[in-house]
């Protein structure tokens, strides 16, 4: 009985793969390359949608070919400077990055100590938490005019730059503030007991125990803050008309030259992605300690 039933109940996969060697080979090939094939398929689908849209319902949208032709000079000569608002794409990116770096630095310098204070003092938290919760969701577009008013009276100052920095710093600060505060509150009591038993001074308790214990949280905040700072740059440059990737985008739109807008969007996205990756590498280093 068993000898006759054996060939009938052979493993279910084997006759199929024997009769379709091509399919098995394709599956193996696909499983090795799907990391590449799937994203490519997604990109092609979006490109097709773009072509279709510009051909049908969005007549003003330049199709991918026209976009590429118009964008080429900005990509092949990324550092060219033909005029204040006509520069290579990386040169614009560089200008934007400098502005973001300054605003981001202000956000960290102000936000980290503020977060520490909030984490340490329940009194401080009760006093400031409501106002923080109200200010946090305010859009950069709303802060910028206020910055213009605040710094408008400063003689000889670059008002648009100060207003942009004010906006970036204010919008980007909150994740750092809130994550640092959470981190300080999450310091294990064991660590604080060690500090108390050893009678560490306030300064030593801060530098040897509290800051190292909070670092992973702080860097999560720093990463989120950087993402917001980069988001805000476009709005800040649009409204102030500063040269940069966002200023360029807005200027081309106003000049009815739509070809480079997509180029700007892609560049902003790519730079934001790279910044986030870089920060998560740093963040993971501190998390593993």
């Amino acid at each position: 009985m068993s000898s006759t039933s054996l060939p009938v109940t052979a493993t279910p996969g084997s006759p199929a793969s024997a009769s379709h060697p091509f399919r098995a080979g394709f599956q193996r090939w696909f499983s090795r390359l799907d990391w590449f094939v799937l994203p490519l398929a997604g990109a092609v689908a979006v490109l097709a949608l773009w072509y279709l849209s510009s051909a049908t319902w969005a007549k003003d949208l330049p199709n991918p070919t026209r976009t590429w032709i118009a964008s080429k000079p900005y990509i092949v000569e990324p550092f060219a400077k033909r005029g204040e608002l006509d520069q290579g794409i990386l040169r614009f990116t560089w200008l934007s990055l400098i502005l973001v770096a300054k605003g981001y630095a202000i956000a960290l310098v102000v936000g980290t100590p503020l977060g520490f204070l909030l984490g340490i003092s329940p009194l401080f938290t009760r006093a400031l938490d409501p106002i923080i919760q109200v200010l946090r969701p305010v859009s950069p577009l709303a802060w910028l005019p206020l910055g213009m008013i605040l710094f408008g009276g400063w003689k000889g100052a670059n008002v648009s730059e100060l207003a942009a920095l004010f906006t970036i710093a204010l919008c980007a600060m909150w994740p750092t503030v809130l994550n640092t505060a959470v981190g300080v509150r999450a310091i294990p009591q064991d660590y604080m007991n060690v500090a108390r038993v050893l009678k560490l001074s306030r300064w030593k308790t801060l530098t040897k125990v509290m800051i190292p214990a909070t670092l992973p949280y702080m860097f999560t905040g720093f990463r989120l803050s950087l993402g917001i700072a980069w988001l805000v740059i476009v709005a800040a440059e649009m409204l102030t008309g500063r040269p940069g990737i966002g200023g360029f985008l807005w200027q081309q739109y106003n000049a009815l030259i739509y070809e480079q807008i997509i180029l700007c969007i892609l560049t902003i996205g790519l730079v934001g992605f790279v910044l986030d990756r870089l920060m998560s590498v740093v963040e993971r280093r501190f998390r593993s300690v």
């Binding site: 064991d190 660590y191 007991n193 060690v194 040897k208 125990v209 190292p212 214990a213 670092l215 300690v289």
Partner: peptide, 8 residues
């Protein structure tokens, strides 16, 4: 009870 060492 827990060693309470500073992990860093």
């Amino acid at each position: 009870q827990s060693p309470s060492l500073l992990p860093w």
